[in-house]
Amino acid sequence: MIPMIRFPRKRTIFWTLLAGALLWPIFSWAVLHAIWGADLEACRAARGVGACWGVIVEKHRLLFFGRYPFAEQWRPLIATLLIVAVLGLATWRRLWQPRFAVLALITLSIATLLMLGGLASLSFVPTKLWGGLPLTLLISLGSTLLAFPFAILLALGRRSRLPLLRQLCTLYIELVRGVPLISLLFMAAFLFPLLLPAQWRPDILPRVVFTIAAFAAAYLAEVIRGGLQAVPSGQYTAALAIGMTWWQATRHIVLPQALRTALPALVNSFVGIFKDSSLISIVSLHELTGALAISLGGDAEWRSFYLEGYLFIALIYWIFCYALSCSARRLESGLRY
């Protein structure tokens, strides 16, 4: 990094004092004077002086798993661990092959089935009881996987020589990118039941996953298009010269290179989708953000410690997003051969 703006070194004392003045109250509130146990009296006494992390201890099950039946919460726990494992593997470049998508899909289906139940000796848990971290993970990963093939087709379509196809794909991408996700989610909540025949009543969860996938596909398509543009046209010409058809050349020569180039940007898009999944709490699904509302909103005693709850949820989001963007950066630096 090239430092551009000169500050004389001798201002160290000034900067240190300024940083101290900014950070000390936060440290004092969050660590020094904080209450760590689920002790309501102590929390009330420390109000305004120290944080009450006891609210997390008291409500952690509701925060993590929402209204999922208490005795069955090992199921969402295993589902969460499975999805986290897939996400962890996904940042390993060696594994980025088509086969990995199949593995992710299988893991996701196992996690969903585990949460849903109704098989073997597992009791059936309707999706309206799902919540918390597993729901956030399921929705963000599920919609990304669903969006991915669609995004590849859209990106190819937008670069196609066929005019009608190209314009349709461009229209879709620009239309979706021009409107906020929340308006699409309202569409999923209110308009989907109108678009389908009256006797079809799809559950809200698949409707939302489908909508986020349709939204994410437009953004992923632009990222993949960037990757496609980075592939030298000689690659394609050479593939045609050895007798490949357009589909073969795209599938075996162009797409693998394009996706490899686009990989860091794809991971960053996933971070965006992960953060955007918090919006579904507005259409009354209780993922992490919504789970906080049901665990504290109805509790008159702990309700005054909402801020600590928000910070804790923010920390969970932050850990996932930061880890993923770090791995994106690592992938990017590994890309410069």
């Binding site: 953060k275 918090s278 949820i313 997003c321 930061y322």
Partner: peptide, 12 residues
């Protein structure tokens, strides 16, 4: 700030 959803920051 970049790694926390805007909705959460807004509610906070």
């Amino acid at each position: 700030l970049r790694n926390i959803p805007l909705l959460l920051q807004l509610l906070m």
